[in-house]
Design a binder for these strands. Sequence first.
DNA 1: GGAATTAAATACCGTATCGTATTTTAATTA
DNA 2: TAATTAAAATACGATACGGTATTTAATTCC
Lengths: 197, 197
Amino acid sequence: MPRGRPRKIDPKDALKTAMMTFWEKGYERTSMADISEATGMAKPGLYASLGDKDEIFKKALALYNDEMGSPMAEELVSSSAPLKEALRASLSGMMHSLQGSGQPMGCFVLNSTFECSAGDPDIKERVCDLNISRRDAYLARLKRAKSEGELPEATDELALANFFAGQSAAIGVMAQSGVELGDLEAMIEVSLSILPG
Amino acid sequence: MPRGRPRKIDPKDALKTAMMTFWEKGYERTSMADISEATGMAKPGLYASLGDKDEIFKKALALYNDEMGSPMAEELVSSSAPLKEALRASLSGMMHSLQGSGQPMGCFVLNSTFECSAGDPDIKERVCDLNISRRDAYLARLKRAKSEGELPEATDELALANFFAGQSAAIGVMAQSGVELGDLEAMIEVSLSILPG
DNA sequence: GGAATTAAATACCGTATCGTATTTTAATTA
DNA sequence: TAATTAAAATACGATACGGTATTTAATTCC
């Protein structure tokens, strides 16, 4: 049992709320006052339990990856479905996650990719790393496909992995630009058509 | 001849400088003081000749489109090269424009797509429109290709147009994430491989 | 040359921001 | 119950921001 006055709000919950706020409004448009109000934690409590704005943002990125990025990557990499189905599921999952109910629109990592490129280098690097780790999930699945004979030996898996990671970003950009769900699905089918079979 | 004291700085030049500043740092990270310093125009002069921050940003978007977007779209739409070559030139041009010397990194419109989605609705709409107009340039070229027999009659041009517009965004995202030029070129070749022939 | 016109330059205002010092409150231990 | 520990609440400080009022300087028309 801890000694003094107990916390009113679990820092884990506060971090999740902060993550949602950053996800929705971005780094610059989110103020510490916004986070304080959203979490119900006064600013000194925030600083004491979660750190300053940059630290909270980094933790929010990490939490997002734990809750959203990693599970989707895991699903993709370890899926026993045929390659094409696995890729369709991945891109389709990305598409639907952009407008999931009960959560902000879009992908937090993609939203942050450009805004954070002009800011703190450490944050920029972390965002880049998350994009690359998504690419690497595609790469892992493609390598397995090749080893299991689903792809020709001559296949350039890295090129394909960059292509599909890029495709998942493309879906985010086009969705943000107002392209309808049905058109996004057609886009996905176009990109899947590069696969043999 | 105008009456009173002559302008020290041509508002056209100032707008171009402001555009470069927004392009490099984004909307939120660019302050009016930054623009004032970059242009050499004191703040009252800026407001008098170019308007407030939102107005300058909108004008910067329009100028960027005039100087960068429209010419590239025009080149794509009216190119007499075979479809595949025209698309390769377009995507390759996008890729190289991301790191052109003497200009900020990346594409101003793409950089703004996510940051501005949480801000002023008018700005958000304009950014979306620019993304869609890029898509429409691909659409126009694909329709011509179909009418000229370069594509089968059954082709879904809109799906292909969204795909290639998305591809151009994908290049921007992957480049921002640190993917090398050679790998981006391989990505482009993958995307071009969906075309017949 | 002087009145009128327009822009530059400086200084300023209200507000919002990140971050913290200080006080008050709630719990545990002795 | 008194002392201790830790958090909540409030208030505050320094700075940066968007935007403007005011004064000064440069040019044209009469």
